[in-house]
Amino acid sequence: MAAYFQAPTAYSRTALPPLAAVSAPQHLVPPSDTSGTIMAITGVGFTVIAGDARRGDAFGAYPQVRFVPTVFRLTDKAVLATNGFASDGNIFIKKVRQRLDWYRHAHAKDMSLHAIALLIQSMLYQRRFCPFYVHNILGGIEDDGSGAVYSFDEVGSYVRETCRAAGSASTMLQPFLDSQIYPKSSQPPTPGSATHLSLARVLALVMDSYKHAADRLSHDQIGDGLEVYIVLSKGTSTQGLNIEGVSEVTSIPGGERIFLLRRSLA
């Protein structure tokens, strides 16, 4: 009985290994980066959200498949781009869409953009200790008609910005976007809309960025197809959209409008 009341450290009736040694290795199935690049830019009354369609394999050595969308239309005024670990991304999109459906059924309207951003933050942070390995960029039109881009890290920190690139080509593209979009005197860059850029100019920036990133990066990182969603606030003209490969995907007429541009990045 004396031994029974000793401090636990001195209590050694059995010689079990420490707990850490018997539990399974914690990185049994590490997430893999399935590459690709996403970006979003907002101007006055419009937001452009883009992503490439090539999917790398788990080893980052070989393009696994040549057309997988990474940009998803959530509502008529919100588009979400994901990048990182593909299966986490798919599940995350599925969950966000389900939450938006529930909201629509409860309130008979679509969730506003800043509310979606907050929802995404809390959904990501819920998994703080087993994170979704995805970078998200949310783009669209706010209730006041202004364009907005929200970018998130894996655990939910987010910020409203004017432009953002994420993924395999982000280190090349982000400084380039900064140089083109933020006013030269703005140090550090301030969020808001890029007032000096037309839709046509922004689309050209996006398509050129992808084309040249695809030329520079190794073959598994970026390529094949480019999908660009263009969200216009109510009443914004479609000037600049009369280019090849654009189709309208708006579901409810009379409000914000969404267009999809598909291009080859061969």
Binding site: V29, P31, Y62, R66, S87, I91
Partner: peptide
């Protein structure tokens, strides 16, 4: 369509797994 041990999915008109993918 394809699905693997990580839950990764995709679809295409031709698919191959394992060595066949290469």
């Amino acid at each position: 369509a394809y699905v693997d041990l990580l839950g990764t999915t995709y679809t295409a008109s031709t698919l191959a797994t394992g060595y066949g993918a290469y």
